[in-house]
């Protein structure tokens, strides 16, 4: 029963997100509006973690399963890759390395800056 109750809550929030996105004409996809709604409900204490925990954790731990059909859809879209297999992988590889480096360096910089600032206040 618990699983049904939790699934009902999660699906209900998903539907609420879809409705809010549509009727407020938000550029956000409904599922992401739903994610924000859930976050707000949790932060305000309207919803407790235990109301969704088991079902949510099952979905989070086995997320890959739900993407399989979308992944299989490459069978009808791989033509876009014709002649550019290597270049496509290269873009992904270089971009990933860059994102990792930029995020790490920027974060370290921001941490150092804020620590310096705090240090000054203390003195």
């Amino acid at each position: 029963m618990k699983i049904f109750k939790q699934l009902f809550i999660i699906l209900g929030i998903n539907l609420a997100g879809e409705l809010v996105s549509r009727y407020l004409n938000l550029p956000l996809p409904g599922s992401i509006t739903g994610m924000i709604i859930l976050l707000v409900l949790l932060l305000t204490g309207v919803l407790k973690e235990r109301h969704i925990r088991d079902t949510a954790d099952f979905m989070l731990q086995n997320m890959g399963f739900f993407f399989i059909p979308a992944g299989v859809s490459i069978i009808v879209s791989y033509h876009a890759l014709d002649g550019f297999y290597f270049e496509t992988v290269l873009v992904v590889v270089l971009s990933t390395i860059l994102v990792l480096a930029v995020t790490a360096l920027a974060t370290q910089l921001f941490i150092n800056l804020s620590e310096k600032k705090n240090g000054k206040h203390n003195n």
Binding site: L7, I10, I13, S31, M59, M63, F66, F67
Partner: peptide, 19 residues
């Protein structure tokens, strides 16, 4: 497509790790 339809709720529960 039945499994694909669950992408909505899977996105919604991404709020939990943030919380």
């Amino acid at each position: 497509s039945v499994i694909h339809a669950f992408l909505g709720p899977v996105t919604v529960v991404l709020a939990l790790p943030l919380y």
